[in-house]
Design a protein around this nucleic acid. Structure first.
Lengths: 350, 350
DNA sequence: AAGCAAATTGCAACCGATTGCAATATTTTT
DNA sequence: AAAAATATTGCAATCGGTTGCAATTTGCTT
């Protein structure tokens, strides 16, 4: 427990009869320093257990080498995957991450933003909470020229870079698939329509219905917060409908899994009575019985792209401000939960 | 995009004809400063958009107000819950978190430790990777008197504070429950026995068997890495046994769920043919069919306790070094996957 | 060996907040 | 009203690394 004194460049300098400036440069591999002295310095630094003081360095250089991340929720595979992608790129580039999560409330999101602002992060990566209605809490960053990049939950018409998938197309494909499977009464379970991801998927849903000449009924739209309880309620609401719907497009795999579970307990057969499609391609898709048809939302790639954009902007290799929106590919993955017709693809692996 | 100059205490001081020292004290609510001047200062600071420079402050105070967290994996409900618990306490106490994850390898764990050491965190919270064999990578912290606290995956005989559950007891109860349900040939699927959590659960398993006069067979012990693939393999191994086992105690819910799924596909009935108990009480327990009996491992509480201990040590309110091990309660939660006898508790909710 | 270019190294002023101690202002005591 | 006590404020050094510019050393040319 003996708290030894920290070694500084001054200690190294005096032990070698050099100046602190030389030591500083040597440790950063500055080209002006003689190879031979450089070696002496790094050797001694190693021996003494020198560790550079980030604060002194940050203070002088006026930058923190830290990126702030604001997530609405961490309990989803998708989000963790995005995080892993971000982490991979940022650690390679030697940036630290400060992670804040909003638990889906605007209030905490704004508090996180303030905190990160005070911590002087060099850049921000964010996905919005359910109830965020404007981006004023990010204004301080914009004013100071600190780059902000959004993914997944974004304001489509805002400035700043956004990395998203084509949610409308995904919603369209999910619904179209159900229609192709013979569904006529298709429920859509989704969340707060203020969020682009949900409103766009809904738009795709409506488009597919209208193209098929199916009228979109108000009562077939269920909006909730995707929690376990809300999912059970949604299932009950669906069971109470008469006639029973024959298809459900759920905007989230976990919610879809709970709905399947609840319906099965009521002896409703999936997919024979009701076919179901989820969204995200979480592991849960393969654990629920029947396995869940879903939209693959590639989290790692999104995280990597988001981070790569931010980092190269910060390093001056590219100017983010020229970019506006980056759209990542997503695709429908068909599994048993929606397969009623034994079509070309034959039976999905059982 | 106009990068305005940052406001410092000197700016505030000169605008008010005061000294920087006074401004600094006023902003920290130092008792020696006159209420009236204090108000003038905070008002102006607000108006100018002053934000304190953490680096200057950290540099001067020689502490970072940052806690490092080393996780072996983030993709589990349990770990995310622990993180949420830690976050709750540390943000209340105004500490930042730097999170590193080892992906279950010693190498990355050590790299994370080095990084956090260089970042000069004030304290460390860690859970060990599968293949970590010693704690030398934490030695630098100990030497400098930086507190390190472990949870879940720990070395039981090491110095330092550990927060764990009684894994032996949990393993015993899980196995005993299976025995009580009439199981005689009980398989145990677990992971690297270097980790206390797994070796202890195994010990509990053996104890329960021996008390019931059941011989513990080598071939009934399956050790893997708990991934999806490994879980499928484990299930196949089990199906190949003759006679078929009639009970499985799995050390992890996700792995248990995959095994259930795989067994069901082979037309094995759960729990009639084989009863199954998992570990952790992840949400997946309630989604898998039948619902999974498991051990409740209270992540949030563990996170809170770990963080509370560390924070109060750092704040000088308590000395962690007097504590050695904190044991949290865990309990068996019985659900359908193991219920063969309709006993006193009658049928678990269907 | 003088002259000049290139390679190394050092000087000293930052970056912005903190804090022990001294100085000044205000209030209370006698 | 002077002395003593208390409340406020300022001085100036400090934390440790960085960097423009100057100084010094070394190498090369003729």
């Amino acid at each position: 427990m003996s708290k030894e004194k920290e070694i500084t460049i001054y200690d190294i300098a005096s032990q070698l009869g050099l100046s602190a400036a030389t030591v500083s440069r040597a440790l950063k591999d500055h080209p002006a320093i003689n190879k031979h002295t450089k070696k002496k310095i790094t050797d001694l630094a190693g021996k003494l257990g020198y560790r550079s003081n980030t604060f002194a360095s940050n203070l002088r250089q006026q930058k923190t080498n830290t990126i702030g991340v604001i997530f609405h929720e961490l309990r989803s595979q998708f989000m963790v995957a995005v995080l892993a992608g971000i982490e991979k790129i940022t650690t390679e580039a030697n940036y630290d991450l400060i992670i804040g999560h909003s638990s889906e409330t605007y209030e905490k999101e704004a508090a996180n933003a303030r905190n990160l602002f005070h911590k002087r992060v060099d850049g921000i990566i964010a996905s919005l909470a359910f109830d965020t209605e404007d981006l004023t809490h990010f204004a301080p960053f914009v004013q100071k020229g600190i780059p902000v990049i959004f993914f997944d939950r974004v304001f489509e018409n805002s400035d700043g870079v956004k990395v998203i998938i084509n949610n409308r197309k995904a919603g369209y494909e999910a619904t179209k698939h159900l229609i192709d499977q013979g569904c006529k009464r298709i429920v859509h379970v989704t969340a707060n329509l203020k969020r682009n991801v949900y409103s766009e998927r809904l738009a795709g849903y409506k488009q597919a219905l209208s193209e098929a000449g199916i009228k979109c009924k108000e009562k077939y739209l269920i909006i909730n917060d995707l929690t376990e309880k809300a999912s059970v309620d949604a299932a009950k609401k669906i069971m109470a409908m008469s006639p029973l719907p024959d298809g459900i497009f759920v905007t989230n795999d976990f919610c879809a899994a709970v709905i399947i579970q609840t319906l099965k307990e009521a002896n409703i057969k999936i997919p024979e009575d009701i076919a179901i499609v989820g969204f995200n391609n979480d592991v849960i898709c393969k654990i629920i019985e029947p396995k869940l048809t879903t939209i693959n939302y590639p989290g790692i790639e999104i995280g990597e792209i988001v981070a790569r954009n931010l980092v190269s902007h910060l390093q001056g290799n590219a100017n983010m401000n020229l970019t506006n929106t980056i759209i990542i590919k997503s695709e429908l993955i068909v599994r048993a939960s929606s397969l009623r017709k034994k079509t070309n693809k034959s039976s999905a692996k059982k």
